[in-house]
Amino acid sequence: MQLALITREKWRLPLSDQALLGVIAAACCAVAASVVPFIIGQFTEVTIGAWQFVAAATLWYVASSGGWLMYTLIPLYITHGQTRRGAFRVWMITGGGMVTLTAAIITLGFLVERWLYQAQGFTGYAEPVVVPDLFLSFLLAFAVFWVVGGSIGGALYRSPRFGWISIPIGLGIIALTGSFEQASARFVGFWGGTTPFLEIETMWIYRLLLVIVVCSVGWVVWMMIRHLAVRNR
């Protein structure tokens, strides 16, 4: 309801193509994640899940979507008589939708994976799935990736010469949050290891930290684009 109010008459972005692409990609991933372990399972014992790789790839997909949308939306909006504020709003709403949707799909994927593995009798990989926990963790992880992607997209549009500086900073933010974030620590392996807050009792602290990170990066994006000049062709 609230969403409808915000977007009424202001929703001016054709997303159907992108949505279709996302559905196709998700379906392909789902098929691959079930077929590959099935084949491996015929020869040897399956000890790791396949879906976690899909989850990791999806994080980067969300980041690049956030960046691409920011990079293209800003000039498109301004040159067609709309405002930077309008573009930012659409970018945020799209992000909110995409982050929620992908977190739900990924969580669902883990559930289905457990069920498939059990049905096939794989016992080497069977950690329990706590749905609200997992969903919330992914929701926050996707949100971080979306805003970081957006900040890189915005910076690259704003300054073709110095925009690249945002890339190491953005990766730093992702690494930093990922290092104490449940979803990334468990599923995006390459920086994981130290997970100081992983106790259930203190989980809310770093979730709160993540919310602060998302809000701050979002604010930086807005500061970056609010007075932006459209580039000359």
């Binding site: 040159t79 405002t83 309008g86 609010r226 062709r233």
Partner: peptide, 14 residues
């Protein structure tokens, strides 16, 4: 940044 006004403008550059 005034949407009410900018919606009434069209600038085509080159």
């Amino acid at each position: 940044e005034n949407g009410r006004i900018t919606e009434r403008l069209a600038l085509i550059r080159e």
